[in-house]
């Protein structure tokens, strides 16, 4: 799956995107976040305050309970501030 990070989420994790295989036992955005937090402190820092975190799966806004597959594009970002 393709993971994308934006704004301060990108800065904290230290990269804008990465491709990693989806483990068989993970099926939601929230479970994916738990797995990433175990990979390193940069993920823990980025995902520390979930109230300030938003996600999208395949470019559709969704919650942490959204289901995911290995072919998905999953993005993590702060609340948007465009316009």
């Amino acid at each position: 799956m393709k993971l994308l990070y934006f704004a301060w989420v990108r800065q904290k994790i230290g990269r804008s995107e990465e491709d990693i295989p989806l483990p068989a036992n993970i099926s939601t955005v929230g479970a994916l976040m738990d797995m990433l937090v175990k990979r390193g402190p940069e993920y823990a820092a980025a995902f520390n305050d979930v109230s300030r975190l938003r996600t999208a799966v395949n470019q559709i806004h969704g919650g942490f309970d959204a289901t995911i597959t290995d072919s998905d594009e999953i993005a993590f970002f702060p609340p948007v501030t465009g316009g």
Binding site: F6, A7, A56, H61, A75, V80, T81, G82, G83
Partner: peptide, 14 residues
């Protein structure tokens, strides 16, 4: 359209 751009479109300002 402006109200939706502000709250939904994925842009961030530094």
């Amino acid at each position: 359209l402006m109200d939706y751009l502000k709250t939904r479109a994925p842009f961030w300002k530094l």
